[in-house]
């Protein structure tokens, strides 16, 4: 394959602003025997930009868009947070998404889980993600696993990712995920919701962040707690959750994740450059109130 010939084909198909419409991908990919993702990579490297990302061209630029296209990102849990995170990463142009969830949709998911519809109740959540992914971003590679992330397949696939999103609904699961990410030197972006409140915190590998978010030790002055492990997810499962909180926390997680994936490739003039530290935050939508966590 001649790259020059491919770039020439892209040039002919792009408009005078260098924007490449999705409608030309099939013909070019077929002619040069490449995938949509390979085509998009070469287009970006050659100064062209996918038309569907026109409105983020100045904000992200080719370097960041290429970073996102080349990234392999895992979403662990495909419920409220996971569904919204998945949707946002598709629309931002992340090139490879791994979605892990053993569960299927039930009717009470409809109030807040973006991928749940009245038509797919009883279906696996990851199957809905695959279907949605093809429609929203046909260039993205979608990998799904309808097992718990602690399974051998889950652990193996997570190990090859660049970034992991915590969209679980159990505290014990979050600790296990943080340990797994630390072992594989992976950045984890934590998010959790409860009623009108939620929190987001980047958990760098090897940090104590998860233990700070969920303290394991309790004051000895509380006899009911002394010596017992942290309360498990069962308590949390009973807490009400609504879509404004879920979507707000998911958005905070995605913003932090995108910054993590992009900032080392960008100069200080970028909107996304924000130094070494990735702060977290706690939000209360009733006030509304945002408290920074460091």
């Amino acid at each position: 394959m001649s790259t020059d010939a491919l770039v020439e084909s892209i040039r002919k198909a792009a408009d005078n602003e260098g924007l490449l419409p999705l409608s030309v991908y099939k013909d070019i990919a077929t002619e040069f025997l490449i995938t949509y993702k390979e085509l998009e990579k070469i287009a970006l490297e050659s100064g062209f930009f996918p038309l569907r990302f026109q409105r983020q061209r100045k904000l992200l630029g080719s370097a960041c868009q290429l970073r996102l296209l080349s990234a392999k990102v895992a979403i662990v849990g495909c419920g409220g947070l996971g569904g919204s995170i998945f949707e946002m990463l598709l629309r931002l142009g992340v090139g490879h998404l791994l979605v892990i969830d053993p569960d299927f949709f039930c009717e009470s998911n409809l109030n807040r889980q973006l991928l749940a519809t009245s038509a797919n109740l009883g279906c696996y959540k990851v199957d809905a993600a695959l279907e949605r992914g093809k429609l929203v971003n046909p260039v993205a590679e979608i990998e799904t696993l309808n097992q718990v992330f602690q399974s051998p397949a889950g652990k193996a696939r997570l190990a090859s990712c660049d970034l992991v999103f915590d969209a679980l609904d159990s505290v014990s699961g979050r600790f296990e995920l943080a340990q797994l990410c630390a072992r594989n030197n992976l950045m984890l972006i934590h998010g959790a919701v409860s009623g009108w409140s939620g929190q987001m915190a980047p958990v760098p590998p090897g940090s104590e962040k998860m233990a700070q978010i969920y303290p394991k030790t309790y004051p000895e002055s509380f006899p009911e707690n002394s010596g017992s492990p942290p309360p498990a997810a069962e308590i949390e499962a009973l807490v009400d959750n609504i879509t404004p909180t879920v979507n707000t926390v998911a958005a905070l997680q995605v913003a932090a994740g995108i910054k993590y994936l992009c900032d080392f490739s960008l100069g200080s003039g970028s909107y996304l450059h924000f130094g070494e530290e990735l702060p977290g935050c706690f939000i209360d939508l009733t006030e509304p109130d945002l408290e920074r966590l460091r």
Binding site: Q199, Y218, N225, R294
Partner: peptide, 18 residues
């Protein structure tokens, strides 16, 4: 406040513990 209800603790805006 029950110890089991408590999550994040900050002192002067930085993470800390009980």
């Amino acid at each position: 406040i029950s110890g089991s209800e408590v999550g994040i603790l900050l002192c002067n805006g930085r993470h800390t513990d009980f």
